[in-house]
């Protein structure tokens, strides 16, 4: 399976994302620059964390209009898995691929530590390797992860089972303890915690690896059915 790791000016988790795929998952990964105009041949798209364009104006607001984003939107519409982590999540929100917006953390601090997440929905292509309600440990590292959406949107997210992960203990003021959500079709996931930083026990946790394994498992199933 071939993963594209999108690199914006100011991305800084691209190498971790590449490492998670190429070294831990054992699949093919390539960096794709923000100014490229094709994602042909890729089976999944990963938007890494960082501070794209220095977080100027709003996190993700400028990256959202980078040339490669047209192709990311196309890939999402074609049903390919698209994962946005941290700044990648913020970019997906700005691009309108996921609903809502990010605010500054309620305590105005940059939070950088492992947190416990509850797997709320294990029926997505990103979470099928987890048990429902499984508690996993994944690090967060953000100053603007206070997820906001209006009540109507929240109701929709809850009723259609689109909240993939919730915080066990809310670190940032996020609405309904939301840590990660999917789109209606279930092929786009945005999350603030960093699964790519939790792929090796030596570094504290490998709970994030199952997320990448789930994507691979789902892809293989689809491939085998088609073949």
């Amino acid at each position: 399976m071939k993963f594209a790791v999108i690199v914006f000016p100011g991305s800084n988790c691209d190498v971790d994302m590449y490492h998670a795929i190429a070294d831990e998952l054992g699949e093919e990964a390539s960096y794709v620059r923000f100014d490229e105009t094709s994602l042909e041949g890729f089976d999944a798209v990963l938007l890494p964390g960082g501070f794209s364009y220095g977080d100027y104006l709003r996190s993700g607001a400028i990256a959202r209009f980078a040339p490669i984003m047209k192709e990311v939107i196309k890939a999402a519409e074609a049903g390919k898995p698209v994962l946005g982590v941290c700044n990648g999540f913020q970019i997906l929100l700005e691009a309108g691929l996921l609903p809502g917006a990010m605010k500054r953390n309620d305590r105005l601090k940059f939070m950088c530590r492992p947190v416990e997440l509850i797997v709320e929905n294990n029926q997505t292509l990103f979470t099928n390797g987890y048990e429902k309600n499984e508690v996993i440990t994944v690090p967060i590292a953000h100053g603007e992860g206070n997820y906001y959406c209006d009540e109507k949107t929240l109701k929709e997210l809850e009723e259609s089972n689109r909240i993939a992960f919730r915080y066990q203990s809310n670190p940032n003021g996020s609405v309904a303890d939301i840590a990660g959500i999917t789109n209606k079709e279930g092929n786009v996931l945005g999350m603030m915690p960093h699964p790519e930083r939790a792929v090796d026990r030596l570094l504290g946790s490998n709970d994030g690896l199952k997320l990448f394994k789930s994507i691979l498992h789902n892809w293989r199933e689809a491939y085998v059915t088609q073949a």
Binding site: L57, R58, F65, L93, E94, P99, G100, A101, Y148
Partner: peptide, 8 residues
């Protein structure tokens, strides 16, 4: 389109 995020 850019200067404001009308969600918030």
């Amino acid at each position: 389109r850019l200067l404001a995020n009308t969600v918030i």
